Amino acid sequence: MSTVAPQQDSTRPLIRIQRVRKAFGDNLVLRDVSLDVMAGEVVVIAGRSGSGKSTLLRCINHLETIDAGAIYAGDEMVGYRHSGGRLVPLKENEVARQRRDLGMVFQSFNLFPHLSVLENIVVAPINVRGESRATAEAYARELLNKVGLPEKADAYPRMLSGGQQQRVAIARALAIRPRALLFDEPTSALDPEMISEVLDVMVDLSKQGMTMIVVTHEMGFARAAANRVILMHEGVMVENAPPEQFFTAPAHDATKQFLSKILK
């Protein structure tokens, strides 16, 4: 079995973000943000704290609501439907169904502490996808091998390092067979020596053709795996370029300032 989602229509975006706006009170966090992500692309989103990058990622998976615009996964609007020129929220069970196609990996792992590694991975396929336990466990063991942890199936999260927990979290996100993976600063909570083991798994996934949107400050990963690198600045995408252009010939002053600080 493959860990990568089935082939998509390569001529149409897998994820479409159209003029999305999001505010928290008087703070406008996203300002008419638009982005198309094709199947198989790896898009890295960078930016200073408070620039809107994590909020945008959470809006894609409808963990945050939007105030205007639209987000599509394939042909389906995420979280809403249009009615009379207005956005009408979908019911929670409809949103849950949509989230099956958009796996999410958080910076804080979010593993269930009372469940073994294997149980953490199979719980969603069994309860959300309706897979048999035998099918879910077989795929979970394949995924543990993929992330380099085949011997940890019966361990509990407290017995694992941070890097190992994050690799289990990636396996758990893959277990629902998503069309795309969303990573929200997946290495920011890790000790430096554990970062590479997580990034190596992510680079491997990119080589297999997994569609990925990654919020990160790890510019080495962006150089190695990204098709495009985006800089968010004050709620706006000010740079959207291939890595070679992003790092050597950025168009916006905010990008130059960001790179001057982060690449020191």
Rank of each mutant, 00 (worst) to 15 (best):
S83C: 08
P89A: 13
D184R: 03
D204P: 02
T211W: 01
G220C: 03
R100E: 04
S10M: 13
M194G: 11
M1I: 08
D9Q: 15
D36Y: 08
Q98P: 01
R177K: 15
E131G: 00
Q98R: 05
F112I: 03
L115S: 00
F109I: 05
L102T: 02
N120T: 07
E142R: 07
V33S: 14
D191E: 05
A175V: 00
R158I: 12
L30D: 10
S108K: 03
M77E: 10
A175C: 07
N240A: 08
A226G: 02
H82K: 12
V4K: 08
A254D: 13
M194V: 11
Q164E: 15
G220V: 06
A46H: 02
R177M: 07
K146Y: 11
R19M: 02
S132K: 09
F247A: 04
A189V: 00
V88W: 13
A134C: 06
A68H: 09
E197W: 00
K264S: 09
V128E: 04
I121H: 07
G50D: 08
Q166H: 15
K91E: 12
G69E: 14
T55A: 13
Y80K: 03
D36F: 11
P6A: 09
M104N: 06
L14M: 14
V33W: 15
P6F: 10
I213K: 06
K152N: 11
E142V: 02
L144H: 07
V215I: 14
A39W: 10
P186T: 06
G47M: 13
Q245P: 01
V238T: 15
M77G: 10
Q8R: 15
I176A: 01
L57I: 06
V229A: 02
G84A: 12
S54G: 13
L30N: 13
G74A: 14
Q18L: 10
K22P: 14
K146I: 06
V128K: 01
H114V: 01
E41L: 04
Q164C: 11
N61I: 07
K53N: 06
D200P: 00
I170W: 03
M159Q: 14
A175L: 01
R141F: 11
